[in-house]
Write a protein that binds this DNA or RNA. Sequence first.
DNA 1: TGGTGAAGCGGGTGCGCTCCCAAGTTTCGG
DNA 2: CCGAAACTTGGGAGCGCACCCGCTTCACCA
Lengths: 339, 339
Amino acid sequence: MAMKALSKATIYQVAQLADVSIATVSRALRDSDLVTAETRERVRSAARELNFTPSRPARSLAEGRHAANGIVFPDLIGPYYAEVVLGYEATAAASGSSVLILATNGRPDAAAAVRELAGRVDGLTVMGRTVDDEVVAGIASTGLPVVLLARDPVDGVDTVRAGNSGTARALAEHLVGHGHRTLTFLGDPDESPDVAGRYAGVRAGSKGARLTLVRGKGLDLDSGRRAAEQLLTRAKPDAVICANDEVALGVLLAASEQGLRVPEDLAVTGWDDLLAARFAGLTTVRQPMRELGATAARWLNRRIDENSSEQNRTAARRRILATELVIRQSCGVHEEVRS
Amino acid sequence: MAMKALSKATIYQVAQLADVSIATVSRALRDSDLVTAETRERVRSAARELNFTPSRPARSLAEGRHAANGIVFPDLIGPYYAEVVLGYEATAAASGSSVLILATNGRPDAAAAVRELAGRVDGLTVMGRTVDDEVVAGIASTGLPVVLLARDPVDGVDTVRAGNSGTARALAEHLVGHGHRTLTFLGDPDESPDVAGRYAGVRAGSKGARLTLVRGKGLDLDSGRRAAEQLLTRAKPDAVICANDEVALGVLLAASEQGLRVPEDLAVTGWDDLLAARFAGLTTVRQPMRELGATAARWLNRRIDENSSEQNRTAARRRILATELVIRQSCGVHEEVRS
DNA sequence: TGGTGAAGCGGGTGCGCTCCCAAGTTTCGG
DNA sequence: CCGAAACTTGGGAGCGCACCCGCTTCACCA
């Protein structure tokens, strides 16, 4: 069989080869039952021979839908976002839509990029600190379904997130139960709503102890390490409660450099339960990351269906998924703890 | 200002409102210098008022390009792929194209999904064990630019990968240098070309020791753990060389359960240098993950430009990025090692 | 055997935009 | 003061496909 089509074949060429109209080609290839089995087969083989794939833009234009949805996240650096995105992709793909990703990652033109993305999809998930509420509201007002993930709600927009304050409170109480009296929260509540929620919970759970807030910027390992280098030489907290695991791991590194033993000299906690946390013996909080992504994708799909089937729009939904305290060694000496 | 357009505005409405033709709208919005500043501004404000965003499918159809490219990977579970994808996204976005992702992840219809993806992009990056060479060749023969990542080359297709055998050999030699004489390679060379390359390198470096191959399937933590549970009760190797870090971490877990000390009773090594490896004291190999993704994106872009500018196609390129041995504690007792 | 309806198929329109081509307008130099 | 170059702008032809109509063709029933 000669390999013909090096340049894209169109439906017209298939129609010509199969000696039918393009309407029939369209039907045959889309499994419509309005064509004879014989015709269908003839069309199919013609399509195969020409290596034909329908032009996605043309199809989208005609159908009025993209068959794709997008997700915007600040970064993919930590395993946290990766897991969420993976959960999202799996669910979205299962319902037949492609996934566009966009990492705002300190991009200066984030808002423009998100708007551009919005023009390519049937629905959009926006995670955390990526763009202003104003941008989100603007897109949502277009009628494009939007789901917010790990982010403060916006009027009329669905929101999925993981619980922060409740578990944070439990975490702080656990620390106090260990006898720690000088607590430091390392992280900037202004950096993300998640961090804000965690700090609030920690405050609520720190009764009977002195809590200091150190606004370390950045949520990565090096930020944590640098912040800790300064912090530990100056103050002498019993425990450092970090905004996330990466920061906590950085603190662990800094502590080790300064010869501080964890947890004897210093307790450290994180948030996210990264794989590394397990091996670092880090007490932390587990979030259902995969499930966060999956839920967002599922909700988005429902909205898209709603839109197309002219149903009356249901009210904005909000859900907070449960998080779980994971006690390991870094929070204080226990009788016997192995993960 | 009344919020008009809840339903998508089109270029016609903008044209009408600005009292010009759609051709002029198109020009004005695309920064063509063939329009008066005055006209441009009028069009812009009309577009703003209608909250107009050009339809991406229509534009793609007319331009004959998607302004997007895609990346296919087996999974996003490990931090490995996440980093690569992030590097890819960053570079692709910088050159103005959106990114579509597809995780084949044990999907039964992977080939179909990849073909569908191919119809949505101007270029495609295919990573590791996702689809057969046949599928790749088929897509490439369409004229669509393709770059292979961490995968055995296919005729006429660019390939970027990280070095395996050389560093693997050095790793094995290091192990032998520690005095280990009973080596086990844990991982299935048939699972991925990377694993095959690593095994080959280890074989080359194991002179003077006995090397056993244990074909543990799966490259995740639990696979490693389960494989090790069986392995360690039966055989008693001095050292287990794992196909990647996750497997190695699983082995660490299993060893700890059986009361084996690492590295005194058992040496363990991984591959990838995950964040967790650092905290587990795991000797491993670092790959330039971000750079792998970025290179793929860059090459893809070049190919796309080549295609559109009718240049004569340059020959397929291949590059192997350097990897680096990272010695920590798990490979054997050193005088003094801190990472 | 004429009538009836359903199945199978093709024509043609429209999706929203880009871009070529030509028409209209302004500006200058001779 | 006229004609041509230099700008602006509009008209219109696609881009490739889906889908609404309407025409044919038959099988089937009375």
